[in-house]
């Protein structure tokens, strides 16, 4: 299958001098469900945000389906971003407006400012947003304000927002880290379904190995900004898991 994403020698050095990403090379095939493992501070969030330039990479090359991401600017960057949905640990929805309007904002990359100001009155957009809310099972909550929804419901609204972009790739930054285990599994099930049915590539950072085994088709482990494991989730036994997490954890405790 074709590569949807190719990353060559990616580096990120923050202003304070912290070297967060140290030369990552990675190719992601279309339709993969890629799980990112690694401790907090290992560079997972930075890595994901470099892919759609929410964080500017210091050097390296990112090719997203033939387009050069790190050299894109203005219109072409918008063009790339709108094809990449993103889901966050803290959901990052606008709390005091309705679920429907939040989903509608997924369409912003495709329309002009004037168009977007009249969103709620444009039938096609509203219909599409309602369809996406239906997919995540929240059509009855469309007029509810986000702050009145539970964590799991909020993350599903965020998935609907990402779907609104009609994305080819979804970046999920610890999407279930602030949810209880049962809700976490249901949110992951929605992501898995998108990956299988809609053939959307997913890159998802996680802390639960069980979820990684259940939904992932490939696992990457980061440690200090470098890839220390790349393979199928089945290859990770207890020992490998300890290599990624265990020894680090001891170091963290010393600190």
């Amino acid at each position: 299958m074709k590569n949807i994403l190719e990353i060559k020698n990616l580096h990120k050095i923050y202003l304070g001098g912290i070297h967060a990403i140290k030369g990552i090379d990675l190719s992601v095939k279309e339709g993969e469900f890629l799980i990112l493992l690694g401790l907090s501070g290992s560079g997972k969030s930075t890595f994901l945000r470099c892919l759609n330039r929410l964080i500017e990479p210091t050097s390296g090359e990112i090719i997203f389906s033939g387009q050069n991401v790190e050299r894109a600017g203005g219109k072409s960057l918008r063009n790339i971003r709108r094809q990449i949905g993103m889901i966050f640990q803290q959901f990052n929805l606008i709390k005091n407006i309705s679920a429907l309007t939040n989903v509608l904002t997924g369409k912003l990359g495709y329309v002009s400012l004037i168009h977007s100001l009249g969103f709620s009155r444009i039938k096609n957009d509203v219909n599409l947003a309602e369809q996406n809310l239906k997919r995540v099972g929240l059509i009855d909550f469309k007029m509810k304000k986000i702050r009145n929804l539970s964590g799991g419901q909020q993350q599903r609204v965020a998935i609907a927002r990402a779907l609104m972009q009609n994305p080819r790739l979804i970046l999920a930054d610890e999407p279930v880290a602030s949810l209880d285990p049962a809700t976490a599994d249901s949110v992951m099930r929605y992501l898995g379904e998108l990956n299988k049915k809609d053939n959307i590539t997913v890159i998802c950072s996680l802390h639960f190995l069980s979820l990684a085994r259940k939904y992932g088709s490939r696992v990457i482990a980061l440690k200090d900004g470098e890839i220390v494991f790349d393979g199928s989730p089945r290859e990770i036994d207890e020992k490998k898991f300890k290599d990624i997490y265990g020894q680090e954890a001891e170091e963290v405790e010393i600190r």
């Binding site: 971003r81 990449i84 993103m86 912003l108 990359g109 495709y110 972009q165």
Partner: peptide, 16 residues
């Protein structure tokens, strides 16, 4: 800053 980041990621313009 979360929503700002999220909206930016959808490909919205600065004004949007």
């Amino acid at each position: 800053p979360g929503p700002v980041e999220a909206i930016k990621a959808t490909g919205a313009s600065t004004l949007q």
